[in-house]
């Protein structure tokens, strides 16, 4: 299906950076990723899903514990799906984003890579398998996630100034 051919009757949600979204009704969630990561969790038994969009890997214990940090965002999304009736053991994950928007001349590991590593490590620790992913690289991504089918569609974006 083409991005532009979405039926007007389908419910859509635009996910801002640092937020998360999960619903028992079918939604098409759109988000734009640069070095950020979106973890999509899907429950194939109940056919419900949710998605987060985090900007940094870890909350340092200061300020509010917002889901703009990976460890908070993954935990909160998992909890949200459990509240909606999913069993944690049934959840499957898809991981997208984490590109290197600003090349580091010294080759140090950048925030995008740190975000990817955090997603992989944390999902493994939670026992949630990653069934597909598209991470890294130097281009941004526009992601569509269908909460009821778990399907994720993406296009690459070259322009990076609007990315998160």
């Amino acid at each position: 299906m083409n991005l532009e051919s979405l039926s007007l009757e389908e419910k859509t949600h635009y996910l801002h950076p640092g937020n998360l979204f999960a619903h028992y009704n079918p939604y098409i969630v759109t988000t734009i990723l640069g070095s950020c990561i979106a973890v999509c969790l899907w429950d194939p038994i109940n056919k419900i899903g949710g998605i987060n969009h985090y900007m940094l890997p870890l909350w340092n214990g200061e300020g509010l514990s917002e889901p703009k940090y990976g460890n908070i965002a993954i935990k909160k999304l998992t909890e949200k799906l459990v509240v909606l009736g999913s069993k944690k053991r049934n959840l499957k994950a898809k991981v997208f984003g984490g590109s290197t928007i600003h090349e580091n001349a010294h080759g140090l590991i950048n925030v995008g890579e740190r975000n990817i590593i955090l997603a992989r490590d944390l999902l493994e620790a939670e026992g949630i398998p990653i069934i597909s992913s598209d991470t890294g690289g130097s281009r941004g991504r526009r992601l569509l996630f269908y909460t009821n089918t778990g399907v994720a569609k993406l296009r690459y974006i070259k322009k990076s100034s609007d990315l998160f």
């Binding site: 635009y14 598209d134 281009r139 993406l154 296009r155 070259k158």
Partner: peptide
């Protein structure tokens, strides 16, 4: 903006076989 719709404001956008499914 409520949402960033037209990312391709410069017309530069790469497609992955239209929208690649994952």
């Amino acid at each position: 903006e409520n949402e960033i719709g037209g990312i391709s404001t410069t017309g530069i956008e790469f497609f992955c076989d239209a929208d690649e499914e994952f």
